[in-house]
Design a protein around this nucleic acid. Structure first.
Lengths: 214, 214
DNA sequence: CTCCCATTGTTGACAGCGTCATCATTGTTG
DNA sequence: CAACAATGATGACGCTGTCAACAATGGGAG
């Protein structure tokens, strides 16, 4: 163990890297965050890690495979964030929804480029099975929250997917608009959370029980 | 088909193409639609149009410039579609909103890859001024519609940007989710318009006058 | 009408990229 | 210890975007 640790910290170039796969992913995400997806190059990653230009191919069969792994990691972290957001929150639906929404928007703000990547990978018709599974873990969680609200009588009745759809849409749309700077200037001067309250109130109004709009 | 078209555009290979710029944009959009953004290559475009590999540089200083032009064209068509959607529609806010929303979702469905490009270009901090202007033409139109609804007493009072924000978010979010296949399976079996009705009802409920949700 | 020159297209070069085939080193396991 | 699977290195290939230098075109100025 100590031996392993010492070798990990030693910058001296050993033939075997130790954990090249993880290092590639970490560095790739860093680059993604700092210089955008277009700046991602396998050769540059290899160079940065002091490894030959073809070494990455031992861990990712091609560039897309690395992007997929990056996206999968993102979905896992998103799901974890969503689940963590529900710990230590009160019972009312509004509170729980607020926590979830904040978690999502924060994740989107903190990982804008990664989120982009996650969506574009999912858009790919030949996305891997495991990736889809993890991708839906987060949405399943959201749907479960809607059902919870319905059971408590704080969310209008109806097929849960139908009720969840617009809630989802508003949440995702807000995060996307905010992160990509598509909002009319002046709306977000107070930061993400300001607009979030507005959107949250809107969602609650739209999903609350009561008569349909005229 | 493409062959016929190409021959129609170049009856005989003149030294000067005639309208290479437009031809590049048209072919680029076609490729974007059929094979995605990653398949876009200046050299391939030039090849397809029977022109030398460096000819495009006379019209677009680099690849990004071509993408910008493509995005700008997209925004113009989106704005035109949005404006056209309001012709010959009744007075009630709900009707006008419905027309606008349908137009947007249809555009998104018909131009999914292009829309992606449009948003990613805007995300670029050094997006051109003219591009931003056209990009906001469509959102201005949407904001104007909200104001119209407020004047008619069919939309709740409040700062127009605050009221418009969640409406926008829900609309954009729905289009994005639907187009990128991120919706839980089964929701959209009836096509885009089915989910659209659900979202529309939600938006109307959320933006209607009345007491705030509990 | 002619000549000039800005516009547009061509050719050739360069470095960087992803990918592949082949070879070298390592760590593990029977 | 020896064989073997895993991992890394090297070199090659064709593709890409970009640039510089050169060539054809065509629309005005004289």
């Amino acid at each position: 163990m100590v031996d392993t640790l010492a070798r990990m910290q030693t910058p001296a170039r050993r033939y075997h890297h130790g954990d090249l796969r993880a290092a590639l992913l970490a560095r790739a995400e860093e680059t993604l965050r700092e210089r955008g997806p277009a700046a991602l190059s396998l050769r540059e990653l290899a160079r940065d890690l002091g490894v030959s230009h073809a070494a990455p191919s031992r861990h990712f069969k091609d560039k897309q495979a690395l992007l997929d792994a990056l996206a999968l990691d993102g979905f896992e972290r998103l799901a974890a964030t969503a689940e963590a957001s529900q710990k230590g929150v009160g019972d009312p639906f509004a509170e729980r929804l607020r926590a979830l929404v904040r978690a999502y928007v924060r994740f989107a703000a903190d990982n804008a480029e990664l989120l982009d990547l996650m969506y574009s990978v999912k858009h790919d018709p030949e996305a891997s099975q495991g990736l889809l599974a993890v991708a839906f873990r987060w949405s399943d969680h959201a749907v479960a929250l809607i059902e919870y609200g319905q059971r408590r009588g704080e969310v209008r009745e109806g097929p849960v997917t139908e009720v969840a759809l617009p809630v989802f849409a508003a949440l995702h749309g807000y995060a996307d608009l905010a992160v990509s700077g598509m909002l009319p200037p002046g709306v977000l001067d107070g930061g993400l959370d300001e607009g979030l309250d507005v959107v949250l109130a809107f969602i609650l109004r739209g999903s609350a029980p009561g008569p349909a709009a005229p």
